[in-house]
Design a protein around this nucleic acid. Structure first.
Lengths: 350, 350
DNA sequence: TGATTGTATGTATACGTAGTCATTTTCGTC
DNA sequence: GACGAAAATGACTACGTATACATACAATCA
């Protein structure tokens, strides 16, 4: 009847393992063990402790646990704030980490110059691992992070391979397949639309595409959109439209293939071209790279290289949290390269 | 010349404020102050401490800091793993929190039954605040979290309003505008495509739309897609196609408007309809809700209600981290409702 | 029965910092 | 030059937990 007879108190003040110990008539150590290594506690006391904890509304303090155990169960990720691709990567990381009882601490930046201070913040939290997913990270920042004891993995950041652990889609292979595909269609001249030429991803993809195209005797010009966004692609598409159907340029030199460095960018280019009356794939064929869900949507059905994001992420997580007993303490950085898969779509099909 | 004369040592072992204190010839307290409240330290010692820290590769330990100060500088977010909408919300939260020197700890779930255990994990970290962004959270889970001392805010979760602090777009207003818009176009019969009828968002949006439509003398049937995804929308679009152009149904009862509960879903419906030869907006007009970037893309140009996500997020963050001195310790939960804006697109334009 | 092993629990300490209080130094002022 | 206030610093402790070590107790075996 009395109001204070509530069976479950909510923690009005901070309830600690000491309080629970007193309530259960055991030592603090036993309470700690009950929650962190239950198998070391007898069935009977475990029950008593749980009851007492329930009674008092006790929840173990992860901060204190981390301080003592030197493990946070948290993995950090430094990722660009914008872009469909990065959003799906973050989502997949979070999902995967949850599966392995870890959480994701997100450090997202919109400007490259934020990365520096962000990395400093990262180091304050003693994370169990860190994903670096930005092409904007400088080499010396990378190596300075590598010197930390924090497990690191660079995600889709070609320039980082060899310096730190890295996981990446096979850009060379992917772009080669694209080039072959385009050559098979009988194209004679191509334009490569890049996002930011300063990023290693951009350089590597253009390099691979143009090399393979050249092997087929196809020239390939580079155009920089300025970002990997839809908007940047749209603008570029509008600019390109003139070159592609304009009567000014020589028919024989007129590009008949547009190879775009990323899907979001590609979707913008498609729409930009269409807005100027350029028909895809009628006037030009067009390809993307990444395999975003949106690229597969019926409205676009873009020909692209599908990155196996779940696989890439799984690899990255495995590097950070080696599950196997074979904990790799090798001095060499791990380097995993995973192939993507060409998904032909309407943008290259007559 | 000696190898140990390196100007910046990297932390091979854990360097603490005590080590720095010894190196700089000051007390540990002074080192702590140098990093957490520099203004309490003289210019000269500050410099000495910084030099020593640099020398030893010292980085303050945020875990220990949090344990002592009872503040983590981390805000948590419990969010559905999938869906374009949630991805943009998470991105915006992260951006906003970074601006205010906080980090985002992400708890994303793909199944509703994961939420329970996730909330328990949340409580272990003594977060500075928590965003609850899932319609799948049960009422008693909500109130049990509310009993915690952790600041809470429910994001776009109509059912939570009044129980805990909440921020939401104005679903009623938005759907009313949609209904008016559709009525203006002269539509006579509508179909509402919902995602999951179990979610309060779905119920509220359907309720508002059908009420307002009825006011215009327009009937509105409810169809459940089963999810808020593109795929679910696509399937529903395919199913609907028969009703919309089939010769079986009476011409006068044939729906001429499809009102969809969310943009991603709507884009799927559009493509599903198109795949069966239904012309949008020729045969039916169609509207979405959310204002996703993709909905504005030229390929779709969906008529929709644009949620001011930056504003919604800013409100939510302000509730969790009251910047003003007027820290609201009112006992009543805060409830903010922010209007969206109708963006007419090609899907309702002849 | 006594020696031995293993399991369950208690005691005590350390994780690295922030903040309280006391003490020292600095500095402006009459 | 003395005095008081303010600034700067130091000594100490607490935050809440995990774990090494010691201890108690039950179970096994010769």
């Amino acid at each position: 009847m009395a109001a204070n007879a509530a069976s479950v108190n909510v923690a009005s003040v901070n309830v600690t393992s000491v309080d629970v110990a007193a309530e259960a008539g055991v030592s603090q150590a036993t309470v700690a063990r009950t929650f962190s290594s239950p198998h070391m506690v007898s069935e009977a006391t475990r029950q008593r402790v749980h009851d007492a904890a329930q009674q008092l509304g006790y929840v173990p303090n992860a901060i204190a646990r981390s301080l003592k155990s030197q493990r946070t169960n948290i993995v950090g990720a430094v990722v660009p704030a914008y872009g469909e691709y990065w959003q799906s990567v973050v989502t997949e990381f979070s999902r995967r980490l949850t599966e392995r009882s870890r959480q994701l601490l997100l450090f997202s930046f919109s400007e490259a110059d934020q990365v520096e201070s962000m990395l400093r913040a990262v180091q304050q939290y003693r994370l169990d691992g860190l994903v670096l997913a930005s092409a904007a990270i400088e080499y010396d920042q990378l190596s300075s992070m590598a010197a930390t004891s924090m497990p690191l993995v660079a995600f889709n950041q070609p320039a980082a391979a060899g310096v730190v652990n890295s996981v990446s889609v096979d850009n060379e292979l992917g772009m080669s397949e694209v080039a072959d595909h385009v050559a098979d269609l009988g194209c004679r001249s191509a334009v490569f639309v890049g996002g930011l030429s300063a990023t290693s991803t951009d350089r590597v993809r253009f390099g691979a595409a143009s090399a393979r195209l050249q092997h087929h005797g196809i020239a390939c010009r580079y155009v920089e959109a300025g970002a990997f966004s839809y908007e940047a692609g749209y603008k570029t598409g509008c600019h390109l439209a003139g070159d592609l159907v304009g009567s000014a340029s020589d028919e024989s030199e007129r590009p008949d293939a547009v190879i775009v460095a990323g899907d979001e960018l590609a979707l913008g280019v498609v729409d930009g071209l269409k807005s100027y009356g350029v028909d895809v794939p009628g006037d030009v064929v067009l390809t993307g790279f990444d395999g975003l869900p949106q690229a597969a949507w019926d409205g676009y059905d873009l020909t692209t290289i599908v990155q196996p994001i779940p696989l890439l992420v799984a690899e990255a997580v495995d590097i950070l949290l080696p599950s196997d007993t074979k904990l790799k303490n090798s001095t060499k950085p791990v380097e995993r390269v995973v192939p993507g898969v060409l998904r032909p779509g309407r943008t290259t099909r007559p």
